[in-house]
Simulated scan of single mutants.
Amino acid sequence: MLKKLFSYLLPITIYKSKSTISKSIEITWTNGELVMDSKNTNYSYGSLQRILRIGLLKIGFSTIQAMDKALVLGVAGGSVIKTLINEIEFKGKIKGIDIDSRIIDVANTYFQLNSLPNVDIQIQDAFEYVLRCTEKYDLIIIDVFEDTEMPNFLFESFFIHPLAALLNPKGFILFNTMLLKKSDEERNKNFMTHFDLKQYKINAIPRIEMHNELILIQKLH
């Protein structure tokens, strides 16, 4: 508890390791809160949890409560899963996909991710999972990063179209992106053009915590 108290004065790192995917994983007490970071950005809890919560609020907590199945691509420490269960009181099933087995081990140790009810975490590549998946979801959250970099496949039609096919009518995709340069803004605009406005409603929430943009997509019918 002393580390937690002292963290209001200065961040205190209690764990640090390397990962082939995420390069660096750190667990730190910051302002009385335990967070997971990569070398250059927050991975779970802290600012990331606040950012994704804004998107979930935009969908509406009561709307999410009525859903049956959610898919999280990019789990890291599992902060958005805890928001769904503990704050929103989502009672449905959650499938989590993350390529980094090391980061899931750390999440289980420091954030008890493996103790959450109705949560199935699988170590898989998000792209491969989407291509092979036959399930349908009411909510899909995409938060796939390698430190501050986003894999190119997230913005390509060969991923976007199979992803959209996984969504139930009136379901939502919540996509967390990072804008670090001008070309990232154009990349996001191009991503949104892949969705037919007769079938989808699209809303972008720009410059959250300076560098993040949330893209919210609802399937209409």
Score class of each variant (00 low, 15 high):
201 K>E: 14
200 Y>C: 03
1 M>K: 13
154 L>E: 09
135 E>Q: 14
44 S>C: 04
38 S>M: 13
177 T>P: 07
151 P>W: 01
178 M>K: 10
134 T>D: 14
119 V>T: 04
46 G>K: 07
79 S>D: 02
219 K>F: 08
181 K>M: 11
123 I>W: 05
149 E>C: 01
142 I>E: 06
27 I>L: 10
27 I>A: 03
176 N>Y: 00
39 K>Q: 15
35 V>I: 15
210 M>Y: 15
93 K>M: 13
72 V>Q: 05
16 K>C: 13
177 T>E: 15
169 P>F: 00
44 S>D: 01
172 F>W: 11
174 L>T: 07
79 S>P: 09
216 L>N: 06
192 M>G: 04
16 K>M: 15
15 Y>G: 06
34 L>R: 13
57 L>W: 12
91 K>T: 11
113 L>Q: 07
143 D>H: 10
179 L>Q: 11
94 I>D: 05
109 T>G: 01
155 F>G: 00
115 S>C: 15
62 S>T: 12
188 N>F: 03
60 G>H: 11
61 F>M: 00
43 Y>M: 14
17 S>M: 10
98 D>L: 12
119 V>C: 07
172 F>D: 15
112 Q>K: 14
174 L>Q: 08
12 I>T: 07
128 E>Q: 08
170 K>D: 08
168 N>F: 04
158 F>Q: 12
170 K>I: 03
172 F>G: 04
38 S>V: 07
83 T>E: 10
175 F>K: 08
63 T>A: 10
196 D>M: 03
74 G>D: 02
115 S>I: 12
142 I>G: 05
74 G>S: 01
90 F>W: 01
89 E>D: 11
67 M>Q: 14
113 L>A: 09
133 C>R: 14
107 A>Q: 11
114 N>P: 08
217 I>G: 04
205 I>N: 02
59 I>V: 09
196 D>C: 02
24 S>E: 10
179 L>H: 06
25 I>C: 00
216 L>D: 01
205 I>G: 02
202 I>C: 06
183 S>D: 14
47 S>C: 04
64 I>F: 05
123 I>R: 04
216 L>W: 09
163 L>H: 09
210 M>D: 14
221 H>L: 13
199 Q>M: 15
211 H>A: 06
83 T>H: 00
175 F>V: 15
142 I>M: 06
50 R>D: 13
117 P>W: 02
37 D>P: 02
115 S>T: 14
149 E>Q: 14
78 G>M: 01
217 I>R: 02
158 F>N: 11
168 N>D: 07
195 F>E: 03
70 A>Y: 03
207 R>N: 15
198 K>W: 02
177 T>F: 00
27 I>N: 03
78 G>L: 04
77 G>I: 01
154 L>N: 00
98 D>F: 10
207 R>E: 12
48 L>V: 14
206 P>A: 07
120 D>V: 06
